[in-house]
Amino acid sequence: MSKNSVHITVNGTAYKREIEPRLTLVDFLRDELDLTGTHVGCEHGVCGACSVIMDGRPVRSCLIYAVMADGHDFVTVEGLGSKDGSLSPIQDAFWENHAMQCGYCTPGMLIACHHLLEENPDPTEEEIREAIGGNLCRCTGYQQIVEAVKIAAQKIHGVNL
């Protein structure tokens, strides 16, 4: 099969690869760039486990071909924390509040919540549920995730919820 050239930036690092046009972005991230933090859940855009941030907005990387990502900028779960290894407020709040069990949906959830807090520093419970409404979790019943977002908001903005 023919190959296409793709230049993309992920977590601040520029990559260039020659790939098959049918390769999805999530497989590209996982298999070509070894960024296995982004997970495959349903491969049809429903579960949100593969969420990444593309040019500042969360997207489903299973619904995007890697060739379509050419020239774009991405953040994955590996890029949420600082370079020194310290956790971002939302990562730390997830850990503090045990906002996960198996950890499989967690990277996608973090992407959704990270984006929410960037857009809306003081989200209501409803707004939080709206923001994670496209990310399925089978472990938590979502409650400790919603609580973690509130904790993170407080930490970031000192918002008294």
Binding site: R30, G37, T38, L87, Q91, D92, W95, C102
Partner: peptide
């Protein structure tokens, strides 16, 4: 007490079966 497993999950460093090559 913080659940120790969670740290690797929030950093994308969990090791799931599909991560082994």
């Amino acid at each position: 007490r913080r659940v120790r497993e969670d740290r690797r999950f929030v950093t994308g460093k969990g090791r799931f079966a599909a991560d082994f090559k």
